[in-house]
Amino acid sequence: MPVLLRDRLFLVWVLLVAVTLLSSQIGGSSGVAWIGSPAAVTVAVLSIALAKVWMVMFTYMDVRGAPLALRVLVTAWVAIVLTALLAIYFGALS
């Protein structure tokens, strides 16, 4: 077990699983009752999803050790997609 605790990829996996379970609790109709408003649920759920995407790319894909340009590109992509999805959800295009 101490070996596992020093294993970065494994720790990332634990974090990702924990966050997945959390977002699954927050999300869906059951989550609305718990959190309050559907909008809050959506913001939380999508933010968590895109944060996980960023995490997977930086750790599993090893973007962490990549040149600055790629790290910036990945982070920008995640930020733009999250912003765009939330904007559309809140009716920016309709």
Binding site: S24, V41, I48, A49, K52, V53, Y60, D62, Y89
Partner: peptide, 26 residues
């Protein structure tokens, strides 16, 4: 091999967003 691994991680992260959109968004 690294590229193939990255492709697989992409399959994973696409599902992360699909799961959020289809199952969780209210």
């Amino acid at each position: 091999i690294e590229s193939g691994g990255c492709f697989w991680h992409m399959v994973d992260l696409l599902w992360i967003v699909i799961f959020a959109l289809l199952y969780l968004v209210e």
